[in-house]
Design a protein around this nucleic acid. Structure first.
Lengths: 141, 141
DNA sequence: TTTCTAATTTGTATTGATTCCAGTTTAAAA
DNA sequence: TTTTAAACTGGAATCAATACAAATTAGAAA
């Protein structure tokens, strides 16, 4: 697996292109996503606090809300109810561990195509699908 | 759509068969699921409070936990993070409205079969799937 | 039936995530 | 620069959910 770290410039660009002001807090939150795996708001706060002392937890929540609204970040629903976040890259699904709170990404373009074609043929009356997400529940070995 | 209401006897039986004591609170919670659509704990509390005054919110949470552990009820993850509950019937998925908090069931045995066969052929390394759930995100019309 | 006990319920206190809001600061446009 | 709308801060408030210790009760056993 190749990990491509985004530069600060690239991050700043993506924030700016969404019509948002480029603040150190926002850049740092975006950077935190490079280090953390499906983090909760609190984990992001702790991580970002290292580079921005005096950071307010409220700011992290504000930023996450804004990023979610802009589609730069997605919320990941969890069994426990605590919200987790995911920096959006390619379309993907999630594998949930049934015996811990571990969550991992699952990429499968072939499956996405099958699902897309399936729902093109078989429309649901009264509901327009915009996105299909799979939750694979199971155990990591 | 045919709605089959469970009798109190049937509910009591299913509770008892799970090795749980049949209490008025548990029966009433199960009955509440017949009336409510993917309710939150608080909605169940309000509904059940009508028939059992003096009911404690804690009891509702306790009962829901027990029922989830026994597989009689399932948790439904929501975008906002507030937990919702679903009395288990046949295997089904969920349609989430992107512009409100509406959630509806989606039954599709044909699709379930396609997915099951797909993942029988294509195993995921290091992960054993036990259940597949679809989240259909979109708009109700 | 009555007794007994572990399971269940209750109620209050508490936690913990998230939001609200009013005041301050700041990015970036003019 | 100057300006100002946008963003950030911090403390209070909210709300779902949990902890816990005491009271009650379902249902097994006598």
């Amino acid at each position: 697996m190749i990990i491509v770290m985004k530069t600060i410039q690239e991050i700043a660009k993506s924030i700016s292109e969404s019509g948002l002001k480029v603040t150190p807090q926002r850049v740092a939150v975006m950077q935190a996503f490079e280090k953390l795996n499906h983090p909760r708001a609190e984990e992001i706060y702790k991580e970002v606090y290292n580079s921005i002392p005096g950071l307010s937890p409220t700011t992290v929540y504000n930023i996450l809300d804004v990023l979610v609204n802009k589609g730069i970040v997605k919320r990941v629903k969890t069994e426990s109810g605590v919200m987790r976040y995911d920096a959006v890259s390619d379309h993907h699904h999630h594998m949930y561990c049934l015996s811990s709170d571990r969550v991992e990404d699952f990429f499968d373009p072939e499956l996405d195509k099958i699902l897309q074609e399936y729902f093109e043929k078989k429309r649901i009356d009264g509901f327009k699908i915009e996105d299909i997400k799979l939750q694979l529940m199971g155990k990591f070995e």
